[in-house]
């Protein structure tokens, strides 16, 4: 037996309804206003309690989901928002909540340091750097790369040597695990030299070399040369032209 009957078995009224419906839908589709792109403002982060509730016992999965959502917030359907238009207090609030959900994740701090921290707005860069600094102190041996980047941003972008020195000293003091490379501790030396405290930098290099913790010959040679250059008085500047 055939699955379908012939078209003649369909009453003309049913066919008419189908054709009218199809034409009306086509007309409606043409006349409707196009979908409207609306920039949705970043909401305030919810409390840790409500996030724990929505995590359904799997906070790491929710953290990853929220991170992707937050990261994609600048690229909403039909509209692209520059990072500098985002409310950075809220951004940092969300990053903090995500980090609370999954403290071992590096993603929120990477996004803070390398994504949101790259915005050409000094005040917003400072908000992000202070966030990275605060959260570094909770787990220095794991989170040192992001504060090390913070030292670079403070030193070369913000030209705030005090901030760079504070970050570098925190790195030297707290990031002392076996996995942390030596240059992280050495950052303090170069920042000290930058702020003009050559004597302190020189003492630090000497102490580092004497401690025996540095075994790589290239690293020892580099630090020795650096120490020597600090001991050699810099040549006098050329006389100004009349």
């Amino acid at each position: 037996m055939a699955e379908e009957r012939s078209l003649h078995s369909v009453p003309p009224s049913a066919l008419a309804i189908l054709i009218v419906g199809l034409c009306a839908q086509g007309l409606w589709h043409q006349l409707r206003p196009p979908p409207e792109a609306r920039a949705a403002a970043l909401p305030s982060p919810p409390s840790a309690g409500s996030l724990a509730l929505w995590a359904l016992g799997d906070p790491e999965a929710l953290a990853r989901l929220l991170m992707l959502w937050l990261q994609a917030h600048d690229n909403q359907p039909g509209i692209s928002l520059p990072f500098k238009d985002l409310d950075y207090d809220k951004v940092v609030g969300w990053l903090g909540r995500i980090l609370d959900l999954d403290p071992r994740a590096q993603y929120p701090l990477l996004a803070a340091a390398r994504l949101y921290g790259e915005v050409p707005d000094e005040a917003k860069q400072r908000v992000v750097l202070e966030f990275v600094y605060r959260r570094f102190l909770e787990d220095p041996d794991r989170r040192w790369p992001w504060l090390a980047h913070g030292v670079f941003v403070a030193r070369h972008r913000l030209h705030d040597q005090r901030m760079a020195l504070r970050f570098a000293e925190a790195l030297a003091r707290y990031a002392t695990g076996p996995e942390v490379p030596h240059w992280v501790q050495q950052m303090r030396i170069f920042v000290l030299a930058d702020v003009g405290d050559v004597e302190a930098a020189r003492l630090l290099i000497r102490a580092l070399l004497d401690s025996g913790r540095i075994t790589d010959p290239h690293e020892i040679r580099f630090l020795s040369e650096r120490l020597k250059s600090m001991q050699t008085p810099s040549p006098d500047p050329p006389p100004a032209r009349p």
Partner: peptide, 18 residues
């Protein structure tokens, strides 16, 4: 509009079923 279209599709399908 969509109700008319769906009724048309549904009736067309039902009448052709064997």
């Amino acid at each position: 509009v969509y109700l008319v279209l769906l009724i048309g599709v549904g009736l067309f399908d039902l009448y052709r079923k064997n």
